[in-house]
Nucleic acid binder design. Structure first.
Length: 311
DNA sequence: CGGTTTTGACCCGCGC
DNA sequence: GCGCGGGTCAAAACCG
């Protein structure tokens, strides 16, 4: 377990840069859709339900759960360069993307993922739709759900995000001294996976790739942790993967940078029913917040999510 | 004792 | 067809 490591590490911040080769480029780079910051990302993010301006997020935990934040912080940092955003979404697996190749530049994740056969889950109750590789019939292609990757500047690899993950594999990455770790959501019915690796170019950057959508709510930190462990940035990512519609990002003590914007936002995720998106469990209906134009109002180091202001 | 991590083996897709 | 690399499995080890 890496919990102990997580608790003590210093600042963590998430960055979206223009680099297309950031560790996961080796895979499926042809099906990657890129975001760009600046004026363009406003629309794009909204398209994905990201609404940096929206502050209607419902905090799952208590507003005062920031005791673990001292001396650390999570930051959502968008470089201002026009090409500064490399968060990516892969609407479908490349094995299934061919049919929709014409839309490969149009990150319509919600529609594409709904056609994705569900992935296998670690659960034992309901049989996953995807056949485990060892028993997978020949010719049956591996299905991959929509993915989203981002980079986080952090000293720890595995970022707490409010979900519980079980590591199920680790592989050496070619041309990188750092291994890639594979995690699955511990929810027996949840199919979400994530990969964590360090950038070979900048070892301080952790590249986290989420795949699939959580079909359950954030379970908090069952190990006695706080609801939002803001020294970990992956809250962000967990909100990309799951169908949870509203989120916020803890922002504290952000070291101001001319080329960076800190945003706090709630996120409305693509409305992909869990059962269509591959989940075998159900998700309580979520309100669908109205997207509004995103404005990255400069450095918002003092802006905290609504729930966190309430203290 | 149950859950998680580790790690070698295996499977699969892809490029040559 | 073969080799490579990514992804996953599953048994053993580990841990609380």
């Amino acid at each position: 377990m890496e919990d102990k490591d997580k608790v003590s590490h210093p600042a963590t911040k998430t960055e979206f840069t223009s680099e297309s080769n950031w560790g996961i480029g080796a895979e499926d780079s042809d099906s990657v859709n890129y975001f760009f910051s600046g004026d363009r990302d406003t629309n794009i993010l909204s398209e994905f339900g990201w609404n940096p301006q929206q502050e209607q997020a419902n905090r799952i935990g208590g507003p005062d759960d920031r005791s673990d934040l001292a001396g650390s912080g999570s930051y959502w940092l968008f470089p201002q360069e026009t090409s500064g955003f490399s968060g990516l979404i892969e609407p479908v697996d490349k094995t299934t993307a061919e049919a929709s190749a014409s839309t490969s530049n149009n990150p319509s994740v919600s529609s594409s993922s709904s056609d994705d056969p569900p992935e296998k889950s670690t659960g034992s109750i309901e049989k996953p739709a995807e056949i485990p590789s060892k028993s997978r019939k020949k010719g049956q292609k591996r299905i991959r759900q929509q993915r989203f990757a981002f980079m986080t500047k952090s000293e720890v690899d595995h970022l707490e995000d409010g979900y519980r993950w079980r590591k199920y594999g680790q592989k050496a990455v070619k041309n990188s001294p750092f291994p890639r770790s594979y995690y699955r959501c511990t929810n027996s019915k949840c199919t979400v996976k994530k990969r964590v690796e360090r950038s070979s170019e900048d070892p301080t950057i952790v590249i986290t790739t989420y795949e699939g959508q959580h079909c359950h709510h954030n379970i908090g930190f069952p190990r006695g942790g706080t609801i939002i462990s803001t020294h970990e940035a992956a809250v962000f990512a967990s909100q990309i993967a799951p169908p949870l519609s509203q989120f916020y990002y803890p922002i504290h003590n952000f070291p101001r940078d001319q080329n960076s914007l800190v945003i706090t936002q709630s996120v409305d995720h693509p409305q992909v029913p869990a059962d269509e998106a591959g989940g075998s469990c159900t998700m309580p209906p979520e309100p669908n917040p109205q997207p509004s134009s995103a404005t990255y109002d400069g450095l918002l180091g003092d802006i905290v999510p609504p729930g966190m202001r309430n203290k």
